[in-house]
Deep mutational scan, measured.
Amino acid sequence: FDIYVVTADYLPLGAEQDAITLREGQYVEVLDAAHPLRWLVRTKPTKSSPSRQGWVSPAYLDRRL
Rank of each mutant, 00 (worst) to 15 (best):
F1R: 10
F1W: 11
F1L: 09
F1A: 08
D2V: 11
D2P: 15
D2R: 10
D2M: 13
D2F: 14
D2N: 11
D2E: 12
D2K: 11
I3R: 04
I3S: 05
I3Q: 06
I3F: 08
I3G: 04
I3T: 09
I3V: 12
I3C: 12
I3P: 03
Y4P: 00
Y4D: 00
Y4H: 03
Y4N: 01
Y4L: 03
V5I: 14
V5F: 09
V5Y: 13
V5L: 09
V5H: 04
V5R: 12
V5D: 01
V6Y: 01
V6M: 03
V6H: 00
V6P: 00
V6T: 04
V6A: 07
V6C: 10
V6G: 00
V6N: 00
T7D: 02
T7H: 04
T7C: 10
T7M: 09
A8M: 14
A8H: 12
A8E: 09
A8V: 08
A8R: 15
A8Q: 13
A8K: 15
A8G: 07
D9A: 06
D9L: 05
D9V: 04
D9G: 06
D9I: 03
D9Y: 04
Y10T: 05
Y10M: 04
Y10I: 08
Y10L: 05
Y10D: 02
Y10K: 03
Y10S: 03
Y10E: 02
L11A: 11
L11S: 12
L11E: 14
L11D: 12
L11C: 13
L11H: 14
L11I: 15
P12Q: 06
P12N: 08
P12I: 09
P12C: 06
P12H: 06
P12V: 08
L13V: 12
L13I: 11
L13F: 11
L13W: 10
L13T: 15
L13Y: 10
L13C: 12
G14E: 15
G14S: 13
G14M: 12
G14P: 15
G14T: 12
G14Q: 13
G14A: 15
G14C: 12
A15D: 15
A15Y: 13
E16I: 08
E16L: 09
E16P: 08
E16C: 09
E16M: 09
E16F: 08
E16W: 10
Q17E: 14
Q17M: 12
Q17V: 14
Q17G: 11
Q17N: 12
Q17H: 13
Q17I: 14
Q17A: 13
Q17W: 13
D18K: 05
D18H: 08
D18L: 06
D18A: 06
D18E: 09
A19M: 10
A19S: 12
A19H: 13
A19Q: 10
A19W: 14
A19C: 08
A19R: 08
A19Y: 13
A19L: 07
A19T: 10
I20F: 14
I20G: 03
T21G: 08
T21Y: 13
T21N: 09
L22F: 04
L22V: 05
L22W: 03
L22Y: 01
L22C: 02
L22Q: 01
R23D: 06
R23Q: 10
E24V: 15
E24Y: 12
E24I: 14
E24P: 10
G25K: 02
G25P: 00
G25D: 02
G25R: 02
G25T: 02
G25C: 04
G25V: 01
G25F: 03
G25Q: 02
G25H: 03
Q26A: 06
Q26T: 12
Q26N: 04
Q26I: 05
Q26E: 15
Q26S: 06
Q26M: 12
Y27M: 11
Y27H: 09
V28H: 01
V28R: 00
V28P: 00
V28S: 00
V28L: 03
V28M: 01
V28F: 02
E29N: 04
E29P: 00
E29R: 07
E29L: 10
E29W: 15
V30I: 09
V30R: 01
V30A: 02
V30H: 01
V30Q: 01
V30L: 09
L31R: 02
L31E: 01
L31K: 02
L31H: 02
D32K: 04
D32L: 07
D32Q: 06
D32M: 06
D32V: 07
D32H: 06
D32F: 08
A33G: 09
A33T: 09
A33M: 14
A33W: 09
A33D: 10
A33R: 14
A34F: 09
A34K: 13
A34T: 15
A34L: 09
A34I: 08
A34P: 04
A34S: 15
H35D: 15
H35T: 09
H35G: 10
H35K: 05
H35Q: 09
H35I: 04
P36Y: 04
P36A: 08
P36I: 05
P36S: 08
P36Q: 07
L37E: 14
L37T: 11
L37I: 06
L37P: 04
L37G: 12
R38L: 10
R38P: 00
R38M: 09
R38S: 07
R38T: 05
R38Q: 06
R38G: 03
W39L: 01
W39S: 00
W39G: 00
W39P: 00
W39A: 00
W39E: 00
W39Q: 00
L40Y: 10
L40K: 04
L40E: 03
L40S: 01
L40D: 00
L40V: 02
L40M: 05
L40F: 09
L40T: 00
V41L: 01
V41A: 01
V41S: 00
V41N: 00
V41M: 01
V41R: 01
V41E: 01
V41P: 00
V41Y: 01
V41K: 01
R42L: 04
R42I: 04
R42D: 01
R42Q: 06
R42K: 07
T43F: 05
T43V: 08
T43P: 02
T43D: 02
T43R: 02
T43C: 06
T43E: 03
K44M: 15
K44T: 12
K44H: 12
K44C: 15
K44N: 07
K44A: 12
K44F: 15
K44P: 10
K44I: 15
K44S: 09
K44D: 04
K44Y: 15
P45Y: 06
P45S: 10
P45W: 07
P45T: 07
P45V: 06
P45D: 08
P45R: 08
P45I: 04
P45F: 05
P45E: 12
P45M: 07
T46E: 10
T46I: 05
T46D: 11
T46S: 11
T46N: 08
T46K: 05
T46Q: 07
T46Y: 08
K47Q: 12
K47Y: 10
K47P: 14
K47H: 12
K47A: 14
S48M: 12
S48N: 14
S48F: 13
S48I: 10
S48Y: 13
S49A: 12
S49H: 12
S49F: 11
S49K: 09
S49V: 11
S49Y: 10
P50F: 05
P50Y: 05
P50V: 08
P50G: 07
P50K: 07
S51K: 04
S51F: 06
S51V: 10
S51G: 09
R52A: 11
R52Y: 11
R52Q: 14
R52M: 14
R52E: 12
R52D: 06
Q53I: 15
Q53Y: 11
Q53D: 06
Q53P: 02
Q53G: 03
Q53E: 12
Q53A: 08
G54W: 05
G54D: 02
G54A: 05
G54P: 00
G54M: 09
G54H: 05
G54Q: 04
W55I: 03
W55A: 01
W55F: 08
W55M: 04
W55R: 03
W55C: 04
V56M: 05
V56K: 00
V56Y: 01
V56Q: 01
V56D: 00
V56A: 05
V56G: 01
S57Y: 04
S57N: 15
S57L: 05
S57T: 04
S57R: 04
P58H: 03
P58D: 01
P58Q: 03
P58K: 04
P58I: 04
P58N: 04
A59G: 07
A59M: 12
A59P: 02
A59C: 10
A59I: 12
A59V: 11
A59S: 11
A59D: 12
A59L: 14
Y60P: 01
Y60M: 05
L61F: 03
L61P: 00
L61A: 00
L61W: 01
D62M: 14
D62A: 15
D62W: 07
D62R: 15
D62T: 15
D62G: 13
D62S: 15
D62Y: 09
D62L: 13
R63W: 11
R63N: 09
R63S: 08
R63A: 09
R63P: 10
R63Q: 10
R63I: 12
R64W: 15
R64Q: 13
R64P: 15
R64Y: 15
R64M: 14
R64G: 10
R64F: 15
R64I: 15
L65G: 13
L65I: 14
L65M: 13
L65H: 12
L65E: 14
